[in-house]
Nucleic acid binder design. Sequence first.
RNA 1: CGGGACGUAGCGCAGGCCGGUAGCGCACCAGGCUGGGGGUCUGGGGGUCGCAAGUUCGAAUCUUGUCGUCCCGACCA
Length: 492
Amino acid sequence: MSKEITSKAVDYSQWYNDLIIKGGLADYSAVRGCMVIKPYGYAIWENMRDQLDKMFKETGHENAYFPLFVPKSLFEAEEKNAEGFAKECAIVTHYRLKADPENKGKLIVDPEAKLEEELVVRPTSEAIIWNTYKGWIQSYRDLPLLINQWANVVRWEMRTRLFLRTAEFLWQEGHTAHATQEEAVEETVQMLNVYATFAETFMAMPVIKGVKSANERFAGAEDTYCIEALMQDGKALQAGTSHFLGQNFAKAFDVKFTDKENKLDYVWATSWGVSTRLIGALVMAHSDDQGLVLPPKLAPIQVVIVPIFKGEEQKQLIDEKVKVLQQQLKTAGIKVKYDDNDNNRPGWKFAEYEMKGVPVRIAIGARDIANNVVEVARRDTKEKMSMPIDGLAENIIQLLGDIQAAIFNKAKHFRDDHITDANSWAEFIELLDEKTGFIAAHWDGTSETEDKIKELTKATIRCIPLNNKAEEGKCILTGNSSSQRVLFARAY
RNA sequence: CGGGACGUAGCGCAGGCCGGUAGCGCACCAGGCUGGGGGUCUGGGGGUCGCAAGUUCGAAUCUUGUCGUCCCGACCA
């Protein structure tokens, strides 16, 4: 009983931390605000990455890699972007250390090794990328330019949380250049849809697609599209963003092209990204007090087989049977692990793999072999069933599919139950505090009102949903006229 | 950057008020009994008590300083 998890009803935040640490996803590190992603957590990221990468390539994108460092002068070029990120940038000012003459065995920054121009450790790569694109784009024939980068970025956050907000994090950032505004907007929406599909199909996490209000817009964007998810504590989490950048970066970095009519114009841009934050979202969307609940499509281990035996003779019998089963499951494309480690007893293993969120557990003992069955337990419902050994792989594939669908539906029901209309300020406050979740309310469309609401309630406009229906109403705070409801929530 | 908590074995903690040989649980090592929900018995290894000064015959314990981490908030993906 060495690995107890704090109940999420008692302390949601502690529950989340316990899952990450005890589930073996990540560890605290010696660096403030930075975490170590452990193999099991990294395996989830690899699965996310591989799938997203495939989807990016299917939509015509290529991968490239740009430098970690951005010369300050480039970083400054797009004013709004620079201003937005300035206060969370790490800066390289020197390139050398030397032995401390006053303190043996210690090093100090060599004052003679000061850089002429400081380097910003990228918090995002627009600047370095657009500076590069300038040299790559001359003609409409060079467009569209569709590039993605898998990278790490650094944002010096005041307060960090495992996966949700760390000073350094892994992500992908797509940066595209287009000949027309329409095409750039189309790209922005296309990538938003890729993210939404990924979140719902692979993470089993329902999301709302929408557009950000001006307050929440990416620094330097004309429009920020986003997918918003709901966590089990009723707080919203921005899971991905896709930005229409207009010609802002093209103008800042002087990226022009000649069109078919031989006219010179600035290119139109997009950028879009998702990060390791998705792992935090995944954890908070589905898990319970026994540990992680991972969707089969992203689980590093989809099926674990636990042998139950008395003595070597039984063990050998089981080993032989499992060897065959394991091969059948692998052939069927299932990620399966046989845990015949003799240090831990079955009960310990059951608890351990529940902690780690393995979707399906198969227990097999001499008794089962005699009956030509195995015991199958699903993580999401804890339900146990007996399955015939013959045709096991087909049944397991079916079961994995069922689990994927079940956890999506469960999350979707929860989410749908937590989108509530508020028609008065009093109702708005009560919903925020009691029911939580998304609150659909009228808003007069001004930044001032949004700021005021945030100040009073800590709730922000998560998004204006795409295809939002028009509805005349009065702003929840000011009573001014409004033409549609927007979604408010407290958010991560 | 404000508020709070905590630094003692790999992890989780006690000891501290009242200074006097460094403790517990888990984990680890060797072996036994075990095995269908975190089993059990025996034996064993592991510590400059975050760091630095000070008080004292003597400091994990008292004093001062310092560094670090986590949690809550503002900021943000």
